[in-house]
Design a binder for these strands. Structure first.
Length: 435
RNA sequence: GGUCCCGUCGUCUAGCGGCCCAGGAUAUCGGGCUCUCAUCCCGAAAACACGGGUUCGAAUCCCGUCGGGACCA
C-alpha cells in the first residue's frame, strides 16, 4: 500500500495596496487550512509589482493581520524578487514565437480554435472557447509584467500545487493555462472560491463599512472567533457552528466549500465571539482584555498587576456572560479596580433602605473569607433579622458597588469585587445619599 | 455588450432522487429561570427564484426564463 507523496504547496498572494480585508482573509484562511490539514506548505507572497500603489505600510498591516489571525506561513517572498525570472520566461516565449512584440508591449498568441477547460476543484469543469479569447499582453511597454503572466511564472517557480483564490480570477484561468503550457510547466490544480458580498450583494468593499481585519481586533474580537466566522462563510461541516482552530484544521476539506457567494453580515460574528469568550480559559481571556483596560486610561499596569491573576480570572469568568466583545468586557471589568466608578445609575435611598444598607455593611465587616456563599449568608441573615427581603436592597447594593443596575449574581459580584471595595462603595453611597 | 459563475428562511448554511408539507445557527418576537441584565432553556414566525421536462418519486438531474455577481471590453 503506497500513497503518492504529493506535498501540497499553496500560497496567499495579496497586493499591498491597502489593509487586509475580510475577503482576502478568508482566501488566506482557506489556503492555510488546506495546507495545515494536508501537512503541506503555506506561502505568503506579496504581489508588490505595482510600485505606484504598493506601500510598505500595507505590507506591515497585512503581515500583522495575518499574525493576529494566527495564519502562520512557512515561506515568504515578494513578487518583485522575481523580476528576472519574469524577464527570462517572457523572452523564452518571444524566442519560441509564442509571443510577439507590438507597439512596445509583448503579446501572447492565443490559439484560435478548440477549447480550454479548467478542471476546478470546487466548480467542476468549466469550458472556454478559445476563439472567445484574444491575444493578451504579458509585458507592458514600460517593461513591467502583466498580472496573469507574473503569477504563472511565480506559481510555477514556487511549485504551487493548488491555486486557491477568489472566483474573480476564474475568467483569467484559461489564459494562465495557456501560459503554463507555453512555458512547459506542470499545471497546478485550481480551486475558485465564491466571493464575499456586501449587504447590497455587490463585491465587498470599503464602502460597506468595516471590512479591515485589524479593525475587528480593535473592536475586541477574538482571533479564534474571527477565524471561525470566516471559515463558516462558505465552508460548513454539518450543523456545527462553533469550531476551534484545531477542529477547523482537522475537518477542513475543499469539497465542503459551497459554490454560492456569501453576504458578509456581522450579526453572527458577535454571537460567535461571545461563544468563544465563554469557552476560553479565564486566565488567558484576562490576558486578552488587559490591553483594552489599559487603553481606557484608568487602569495602569500597576493597578492591573495589583489585582492579581487569580482574582482577574474570576472576574472574567463572572463577567463574560454579558459581553459580546473584549471591549464590552473591559468596560464592566473596571468595577474590579479601586477606581472611581463610572456610575450609570444613581443610588436611590429612602430611610428604610439606608437602614438596610447600614445593616448590610455591619454584616459584611467580619466576613472572611469574602466568598459568595459567606456574603450571601451574611446578607440574608441581616435582612431576615429586619424582616426584609433580598429584593429590597439587591439593586441598591448592585448600583452602589458597580454603578450599574445590571450585572451577574449579586453575591458573586460582591465577592469578586472584594470586601474593602464593597464596604467603601456602600459607605460612599450612604454618604452621597445623605448629602 | 461578450464570457463565466451563482440562485434553500432577512443573513450564514444542512440537504448530494425517496429519511424534507425542508434541518441547524443567527437575528426578530413570545415564554421560563432569576436579586437585575445577560447567559441558559422552551416556543413562534420565516426559504427550496419561476416555468417546463426526466422519473413511480425532485430542493436535489436536464432545458429555458428571470435575478444577482465577477471578469473582459
Amino acid at each position: 500500500m503506497r500513497r503518492e507523496a504529493v506535498m501540497v504547496r499553496v500560497r496567499f498572494a495579496p497586493s499591498p495596496t491597502g489593509y487586509l480585508h475580510v475577503g482576502g482573509a478568508r482566501t488566506a484562511l482557506f489556503n492555510w487550512l488546506f495546507a495545515r490539514h494536508s501537512q503541506g506548505t503555506f506561502i505568503l507572497r506579496i504581489e508588490d509589482t505595482d510600485r505606484t500603489r504598493s506601500t510598505e505600510e500595507s505590507i506591515d498591516q497585512i503581515v500583522e493581520a495575518m499574525r493576529w489571525l494566527g495564519l502562520d506561513w512557512d515561506e515568504y517572498c515578494r513578487q518583485t524578487d522575481h523580476s528576472d525570472a519574469h524577464q527570462v520566461a517572457a523572452e523564452s516565449l518571444l524566442d519560441a514565437d509564442l509571443a510577439y512584440e507590438h507597439e512596445g508591449a509583448w503579446w501572447f498568441r492565443v490559439p484560435k480554435e478548440g477549447q480550454t477547460v479548467v478542471h476546478d476543484e470546487l466548480l467542476g469543469d468549466v469550458s472556454f472557447q478559445n476563439e472567445q479569447l484574444k491575444d493578451f499582453a504579458i509585458r507592458r511597454s514600460d517593461g513591467t509584467f502583466v498580472y496573469n503572466f507574473a503569477v504563472v511564472v511565480d506559481d510555477a517557480d514556487a511549485g504551487i500545487t493548488h491555486v486557491i483564490r477568489g472566483d474573480d480570477h476564474l475568467n483569467n484561468t484559461p489564459k494562465q493555462i495557456f501560459l503554463y503550457h507555453a512555458l512547459g510547466r506542470p499545471l497546478p490544480r485550481f480551486g475558485h472560491l465564491p466571493m464575499i458580498l456586501g449587504p447590497d450583494r455587490t463585491r465587498l468593499s470599503k464602502r460597506h463599512g468595516v471590512t479591515s481585519v485589524l479593525e475587528y481586533r480593535r473592536r475586541g474580537l477574538l482571533p479564534g472567533a474571527m477565524v471561525n466566522f470566516l471559515a463558516r462563510l462558505g465552508w460548513s461541516h454539518g450543523d456545527q457552528e462553533i469550531f476551534t482552530r484545531e477542529e477547523l484544521v482537522s475537518l477542513f476539506s475543499l469539497e465542503s466549500i459551497g459554490s454560492s457567494s456569501a453576504v458578509f453580515e456581522e450579526g453572527k460574528l458577535r454571537w460567535l465571539n461571545q461563544q468563544h469568550m465563554k469557552a476560553a480559559d479565564p486566565t488567558r481571556l484576562a490576558h486578552e482584555v488587559r490591553p483594552f483596560l489599559l487603553e481606557r486610561g484608568g487602569v495602569t499596569e500597576a493597578v492591573w498587576d495589583a489585582a492579581g491573576e487569580e482574582r482577574l480570572a474570576r472576574g472574567v469568568a463572572l463577567l463574560r456572560d454579558r459581553s459580546g466583545t473584549l471591549v464590552d468586557l473591559a468596560e464592566v471589568m473596571t468595577i474590579l479596580f479601586p477606581l472611581p466608578l463610572s456610575a450609570e445609575e444613581k443610588v436611590a435611598l429612602d430611610a428604610e433602605k439606608r437602614d438596610l444598607v447600614r445593616a448590610v455593611i455591619a454584616a459584611f465587616e467580619p466576613v472572611d473569607p469574602f466568598t459568595p456563599e459567606a456574603v450571601e449568608r451574611a446578607m440574608r441573615e441581616a435582612l431576615d433579622e429586619r424582616g426584609a427581603k433580598l429584593k429590597d436592597v439587591a439593586q441598591v447594593c448592585r448600583i452602589a458597588v458597580t454603578g450599574r443596575s445590571v450585572g451577574p449574581s449579586l453575591f458573586d459580584t460582591l465577592a469578586v469585587v472584594g470586601r474593602d471595595l464593597v464596604l467603601g462603595r456602600l459607605q460612599a453611597a450612604l454618604a452621597g445619599a445623605t448629602a
